[in-house]
Amino acid sequence: MNARLLPYVLIAPVTAFLCVFFLYPFFLVAQQAFTTGNGFTMDNFREVVGYWKFPISMRNTFLLALAVVPIQLALSLLMATMVNKMKRGRDLVLYVWTIPLGISDLAAGIIWLAIFEQSGFLNSMLHGLGVVDQPTSFLSYQNLTVVFIAIMLAEIWRATAIMLVIIVAGIGLIPKEYYEAAEVFGASPWKRFVKVTLPLLRPSLQTALILRVVLAFEVFAVVAALGGSTFPVLMEQIYENQFLLQNSGTAAALALIVLAISIFFTLIILRALRVPKGATI
């Protein structure tokens, strides 16, 4: 076989798979979003944006992303630095820290629900310690802040590890001589982190942040388990449109909006953390 053709032949099956199962459905969704019974229209978008829950779910999704992602970034950097300093037991600690990754998000939501609900661990504990007289309902619509914090905690617990593993791998790629040089030339441990680790970690930070931010806009099961309808988010709106209202056109429109937001943030992250030509390790 012609050696120049071979690579294309080899990637053909994957390309075909992606076209059939991703690209084609994507066009179908786009078509659904932009059409009703009578040709091209923006009606679906008008309808979902005009719906009273849309601004609330949009705000909730952004607030959650804004509250969760920076904390996860800081935590994963801290954890990765700690893991990298370890001489023994490093792999074990990493395994333990990544356990939540192996649990589905709905299961994670249910675990945290078991903690926060009226007959949950937290109430039993507080009651047992005599802090409260009777179990309180933490996750009710009167306690939106608590609901928000519970979702935040669950999300941080569930999805920090995905950033952690990327960052641990990234830090492992930075040659130790750079740290020694920085130390000899007078950089304190904090300066070494800021002046050596962070800039050299940009490619890994890019990947980790893009992955995490995109996932943050797709948050659904954890919120559904802990907040239910008291805390609407974008994904939940898609579910509602598709399965409760049986309106696939509006559901598709919402999906495209989430996609646009994800692409927008991906581009921002790519731009903000880009590495100039010639400045790679």
Partner: peptide
């Protein structure tokens, strides 16, 4: 003392020229 307080400077075998600067 820390390296920076010893009045020394060093040239490393692999140069350790920071790639991002």
């Amino acid at each position: 003392l820390a390296p920076k307080d010893r009045g020394i400077a060093m040239v490393f075998q692999n140069y350790a020229v920071f790639p991002h600067l």
